[in-house]
């Protein structure tokens, strides 16, 4: 059953996983809108929410759900870009450092000159885009694996961030970005703005990846970049795009991080964020070797991780248990991916 969902009928045998569909074949070649793993995630999250609602009456209240949804937005948002990157067979471990650089520059500028909200967002996104471009150029033209390049830029960007920090934290950050925060100012009719923004962006990315030829090219590159190149896809441009988009989104996410933070910002902002993002992507069913995955899964993955963290605290369990659960989820997700690949190869 499940393998028929994952390998749509009608694809000629032996064709690489997801080379751009030919005209006329598009309808049949598209995978089902919700994959097996996403279905599983939806069910798991629904069960978890139900169990938590029964276990603690406090869980299913707006006071609890709103912070949960806001808390997951930076990870889900960067996850959208990371999904595209991983689909192309790459990875970007520098996103935490990008968030650090963006947030410290924006925070300092806000303190110094009372930067208004739109300009703050613009500044953050612009810096993120530039850093993403650095990654993209190095990876698309350097022909070195992305993990090496972004591992290098992780350290490089962090160095830049530390220089900007100087030797102190940023204090007295104004509440300009409260529009994205957890508080009253961050909600309209009880719905948090940052969550809606993240959902809109994720939906656009989901549609683009699924329903446009350009979007399918990312899958083709991850499936077999040589074949994609022979099929006339501009591999370099697409790869470059993936990292720039991730940088832009990391820039926007840094505004969310600032909005959720306190009025002071310390130099450890963003550290370890890349691992949380990659965890969400992998739990969401995106294959770490590229060629398959979806933004919907990543958003669900981020929601699951955040739900677990909230649940562990609300149930009064020991804090480390959430690390244990996230670790298990990752292993289960990767295991499921392996089994899927084996069954496909066997069939």
């Amino acid at each position: 059953m499940s393998s028929s969902i994952l390998t749509p009928a009608g694809r000629p045998d032996g064709e690489p996983a997801a080379v751009a569909p030919q005209d006329g074949g598009r309808q049949r070649l598209l995978p089902s809108p919700v994959t097996g793993q996403e279905m599983v995630l939806i069910v798991v999250i629904a069960l978890l929410w139900l169990a938590l609602s029964l276990a603690t009456p406090a869980f299913f209240t707006s006071g609890s759900i709103v912070p949960l949804l806001v808390g997951m937005t930076p990870i889900a948002l960067i996850g959208v870009g990371m999904t595209i990157v991983i689909i192309t067979g790459g990875i970007d471990v520098s996103v935490g450092s990008i968030v650090m650089v963006c947030s410290v520059i924006v925070a300092q500028t806000m303190v110094g000159s009372g930067l208004p909200l739109p300009l703050a967002v613009l500044l953050a996104v612009a810096i993120g885009g530039v850093l993403g471009l650095v990654n993209g150029v190095l990876i698309a033209y350097g022909r070195v694996h992305a993990i090496i390049i972004t591992f290098g830029t992780l350290n490089l960007f962090r160095f830049i961030g530390l220089q900007v920090f100087g030797s102190s934290t940023v204090e007295g950050i104004p509440r300009t970005l409260n529009f994205f925060g957890r508080g009253e100012a961050g909600r309209t009719l009880g719905i948090p703005h940052s969550f809606v923004i993240m959902l809109v962006i994720a939906a656009l990315a989901w549609w683009y990846l699924r329903h446009t030829a350009g979007g399918r090219h990312f899958y083709a590159i991850g499936g077999d970049s040589q074949a994609a190149r022979l099929a006339g896809i501009s591999v370099r441009t697409r790869v470059l795009m993936a990292y720039v988009v991730t940088g832009l989104l990391a820039g926007l996410a840094s505004c969310f991080v600032l909005a959720q933070g306190t009025s002071s910002l310390a130099a450890n902002v963003g550290s370890g964020l890349e691992l949380a993002v990659i965890a969400a992507v992998v739990i969401g069913g995106t294959s770490i070797i590229g060629g398959r995955g979806s933004v919907l899964g990543t958003v669900l993955g981020a929601l699951l991780v955040q739900t677990v963290a909230t649940g562990v605290t609300q149930l009064g369990w020991r804090s480390q248990l959430s690390d244990l659960f996230v670790g298990l989820f990752i292993l289960i997700a990767v295991g499921a991916d392996l089994i899927r690949q084996r069954t496909r190869r066997a069939s």
Binding site: S64, V257, N268, T310, G316, S319
Partner: peptide, 26 residues
Amino acid sequence: ITEVVYAGEDQAAATQMATDLMNSDP
């Protein structure tokens, strides 16, 4: 004292955990 939770050096995690603690115990 109801609970002791550990947020690491992560400010955002501390805020989230404090929120969860307030919610779970009105």
